[in-house]
Design a protein around this nucleic acid. Structure first.
Lengths: 139, 139
DNA sequence: TTAAATGCAAATCTTTTGCACTGGC
DNA sequence: GCCAGTGCAAAAGATTTGCATTTAA
C-alpha cells in the first residue's frame, strides 16, 4: 500500500474517531481502496483479507464491520435473512439484489422516485426507507 | 374451531395443494382465523400455538411456514437479519418496521407511490420490490 | 397401502462474547 | 503505562436436517 493511499484510510478512520490499527487499515483498504462502493458480507471480506495475506480473524472482521457501521462509515443492508450485507455507501439508497447469486449491488438512486410515502403513525417518525429491488435472471 | 371456520382453513390449504393435517390446520387458524393479515416469526407462532394448547413442534412450525411460503400462501419479509418474519399478505406491499420493538406491520400500500423505478440491468428482470419503512419512537 | 407430514434431537450456520494478550497514543 | 482493539475458542441464536413414527388420502 502506497503512503498516500494509507493516508486515505487513516483519515477515513480518524474521521469517525477510530484508531488506525493494522487490521482496520487492511480492511479499510479492501473496502474503500479503489474509491468504489463495495458490498460485502463478513465472510467475503474475511476471505478477501485472507487471500491478500492480511491476518485478520473472522471475529475481528465482524467486530470491525459493526464498529464501522456504528461510526456511520458503512451501512448494514438487510436482504437475505441468512446473512448481513455491509455497504460502504452509507447514504439512503436503493439496492439490487440478484437472487440467483445472492449478490448485492447499488441501484441508481436518481432513477428511483418515490412520489408519496405513507405517513408515520402517531408517536413514530420515519428513520429510513429501505428499498430492495429483487432481480431474477431473465428466462 | 367451528365447522364452517375449519372449511376456510381447509380450502386455504387445498388451494395450494397442501394436505390439511392437524398441525397445519392449527397454524392456519392462528394465521388467517380472523381474516386479518398477520406478521409472525417462527418463534411467535410457535408460542401462540403452544398457549392455545396445540401441540406443534418448533421444527414443524419452521417447516410449515416455509411450505406456506413456497406454496405462495405467505411471504417472507426480510428486515431484521437476526430472524425472519412471515406475512400472511402475499401481495407486494410496503411494511413498517418498528425498530424499538422489532415489530412488523403493514403500511397502507395506497399511500406509497413509486413514480419511477430503476430499470433492471440487462439480462435481468425485476422479481419484486421490497419497501421497508423503518420507524422510531418519536423523542 | 403408501407417500407425505411430523417430532425430536442433533447438526449447521451466522454472529457474538469472554478473556488474556497486544499495540496505539 | 493505559485502555482500546484483537484473536481465539467457546457460546448463543436461528434455522435445517436425519430418521423413525404417524397420518391423510
Amino acid at each position: 500500500m502506497a503512503q498516500g493511499q494509507q493516508d486515505i484510510e487513516t483519515k477515513w478512520l480518524a474521521g469517525a474517531g477510530l484508531r488506525p490499527t493494522r487490521q482496520r487499515m487492511a480492511l479499510a483498504s479492501l473496502l474503500i481502496g479503489d474509491g468504489q462502493h463495495r458490498h460485502v458480507t463478513a465472510e467475503s471480506l474475511f476471505d478477501a483479507a485472507k487471500s491478500q495475506g492480511d491476518g485478520v480473524s473472522l471475529a475481528t472482521v465482524y467486530n470491525t464491520l459493526r464498529a464501522f457501521c456504528d461510526a456511520g462509515l458503512m451501512q448494514e443492508v438487510m436482504v437475505d435473512g441468512s446473512k448481513s450485507y455491509f455497504d460502504t455507501n452509507a447514504h439512503d439508497h436503493p439496492h439490487f439484489f440478484w437472487e440467483d447469486d445472492a449478490k448485492l449491488t447499488d441501484a441508481p438512486s436518481d432513477q428511483l422516485v418515490i412520489a408519496q410515502l405513507p405517513d408515520a403513525p402517531d408517536g413514530a417518525e420515519i428513520a429510513s426507507v429501505d428499498v430492495v429491488i429483487r432481480l431474477r435472471r431473465k428466462p
